[in-house]
Design a protein around this nucleic acid. Structure first.
Lengths: 402, 402
DNA sequence: TTATTAAGTCAAATTGCTTGACTTATTCGT
DNA sequence: ACGAATAAGTCAAGCAATTTGACTTAATAA
């Protein structure tokens, strides 16, 4: 037998894995439901009272959860609700965007504790890495100032940057960061900070944020379209972030729309880059959002045109996403604050009829998510927390690696 | 506290779950790799030799796996490879299509042991259920004839029918089975046969078949486009069949293509229904495939037109699927045998550049899968086996339910 | 005042993976 | 031809973590 090709198999599981999973399930239940007693947790997770009790005790000792006031609610012994402790863990988010980089520190429940920005040269990674490490050091120092023991509770650094990854793109016009593609960013950041570093694209980060603290809170099937300098979608499928075989799932900006003989990527018509190009706004301009907001409020003709065109294409993109993913909801998020995004939503609606049900919904088909320049950074920071504390198939297995 | 709304939480796990998972991992490893020794299994799954040994012993006693000849391959004690036993389990597949229904019995490795067809009235479920139960009884009797103990080893019945489910569709032209939508099919079949019954759409079934014995064997990320009377896609995401919030994920037939002012669903241009409409072939005609094949071989002008149009739309559909799902491969399957599908593939190619890598691939971007009228029935039959024996997140948890 | 209900604990039982030593069978080197 | 090295697989004890069932505690309802 020429048994030379590697054997492919999924990982087995053991007790440690189950226990780790159960921990995560409890943390997740507390995040989704607020505060729950041990008995509540036992019922909700299907575990026995005793198993929950043991896990709750451990989590309490670790400072991840804490009990609240006794609650009397009918007959029987009063229950002791438990709640996540915000200071149970911290996480650092780093967004590397085309014209600015942002670092942020959040706690376990998503409160923002520190932030800072820096300008990173988009075409010179070797130089940029120094800037990034300084930025991270800044924000870390700022955060740790009056929290002496907090350093040990940092779950890691989540990095988000525009995708796709590992792809040669002919059209460099919107894509200024080719140079970063081949740079060992994760390794260098890990070496420079001593923390675990993970990388994802900006849309995935945004989806993570929406799931942790935003419009997708508690949902297991959601498509989060992120309108940034580019445009992409983060996918929550079956309760987990889905990133595809090569980490590029959801790159809706590269989906082609328009006349069959003249197909253009969505990114050319519905990204902020395309809007700024029409408006002659410089993407590196610190005043960009103010300038834009003024034009939006003035009902600038070019802004109206863009909204109409982008809305038209996005209406179809939402329909396509609904049809292919069958989500509970579609969320439209953006790094642009102010009134642009509400107008865009208005231009997208009414949605086309699709296979998702319209009656009896608990969440709308399309919803506005965050509209905040820091949305991606927040999502990036949410990623290490997700990895450390959210239930997932891979977390249960012996050999990890998503 | 008005704690009235239900508590949402994921299910916990316990030892039984780990064990069940490890069983499935071993079965899966044997399916993907053919035959493996206990030591191989231990290395591949990350479990200890001992854990594997115990599981292998159990599986052997249950008749699901069996040892082969000793293999000497270098120093050390020779190894005993184990392999799946085809007769370890059986499964029944039932395809309910618009003009014919097919039942099939397969074994654990996908061999077909019996099959039969029947005509089911598409608009009269109450009458149709009798026909289906007779059909199932036929095929079951046929199969069990000379396998007296086999009845106990039937994992269940997998049913596949055209989707989407639970949707009111305005356009009834291609959709003749509205009446079945509100019919409690699964319950009635379960009651009438005494077996576990599961339901999925035909494209999902086809994807399941491709994964078990076809072009997606051993892959964890694949999109399987199924060209049947309608058209849909089955999604293998992260090693599992993905069906969305309401079971309708992958309904690519309803994705809109064409001129922006005249968008039409893919189904109108790339389904067999649309081809038959051009050719005046009656979908209920038993000779349909022969008639079609003759026209294809004659280079019939209308066939050429359809192939061109469908190929054009599918090229874009493949691009969209690649962009949104980032799969390892896209598979094109069909219920139509003969030379139509190879021609269609030829018309789709060359594929548009997309974000999936083109160089260094081990599988092509687009591949022809099954072209067999029985493909969906085989996939339907594969579903109970998948549920019973494939590793999945839900199988590890206390509370099941995909 | 007492029965009922529910939360939570205690301690033993059980399941199933892990550990480390051991046996067995084969090839390689001298 | 022989011993050393290597690898497969078994044995038996150890261990982690859930489960079980009885028990305690504390509240409300009748």
């Amino acid at each position: 037998m020429n048994e030379q090709r590697p054997i492919r198999a999924k990982s087995g599981a053991n007790h440690e894995g189950t226990s780790a999973h159960n921990r995560r399930v409890i943390i997740d239940a507390l995040r989704v439901n607020g505060a729950l007693s041990r008995a509540d947790l036992a019922r909700a997770t299907g575990l026995t009272k005793q198993a929950v009790s043991n896990l709750v005790e451990t989590l309490e000792n670790e400072g991840l959860i804490a009990s609240e006031e006794l609650v009397r609610k009918g007959r029987g012994q009063p229950s002791t609700p438990y709640r996540l402790v915000a200071d149970g863990a911290y996480s650092i988010g780093l967004q590397i965007d085309r014209h600015v980089s942002r670092a942020i520190v959040v706690d376990l429940v998503g409160n923002i504790l520190a932030r800072a920005t820096a300008e990173v040269p988009p075409r010179a990674p070797e130089e940029g890495i120094g800037v990034l490490l300084d930025l991270l050091a800044d924000v870390r120092r700022d955060f740790a100032m009056n929290r002496p023991e907090a350093e040990a509770r940092i779950a890691g650094i989540g990095v988000a940057m525009p995708g796709p990854f590992g792809v040669e793109i002919a059209d460099d016009s919107l894509w200024l960061m080719q140079a970063w593609q081949s740079f060992p960013l994760v390794d260098r950041l890990a070496a420079g900070t001593g923390l675990a570093v993970s990388l994802q694209n900006d849309a995935a980060a945004c989806a993570t944020a929406e799931r942790m603290v935003g419009a997708a809170h508690g949902l297991d099937h959601a498509v989060c379209i992120y309108v940034g300098y580019g445009i992409g979608a983060g996918l929550i499928l079956g309760g987990e972030l889905y990133s595809g075989a090569k980490g590029n799932a959801g790159e809706i900006g590269m989906v082609l729309f328009g006349q069959p003989e003249n197909l253009v990527p969505l990114e050319h018509r519905a990204s902020i880059a395309s809007l700024y190009a029409m408006l002659d706004i410089e993407p590196a301009d610190p005043q960009q959002f103010d300038k834009l907001e003024r034009l939006v409020l003035e009902d600038d003709r070019r802004v109206g045109e863009w909204i109409e065109r982008a809305g038209h294409d996005l209406r179809l993109a939402v329909h396509t996403a609904e049809t292919l993913f069958d989500p509970q909801t579609v969320i439209l998020s953006s790094g642009v604050p102010g009134s642009l995004m509400p107008r865009l939503i208005a231009a997208i609606e009414p949605l086309r009829p699709s296979l998702v049900p319209t009656a009896g919904r608990s969440v709308p088909r399309l919803r506005l998510g965050m509209t905040d320049p820091w949305a991606v950074a927040i999502g990036a920071a949410a990623d290490p927390i997700r990895r450390a504390f959210d239930p997932s198939f891979s977390a249960i297995l012996k050999r990890q690696g998503e």
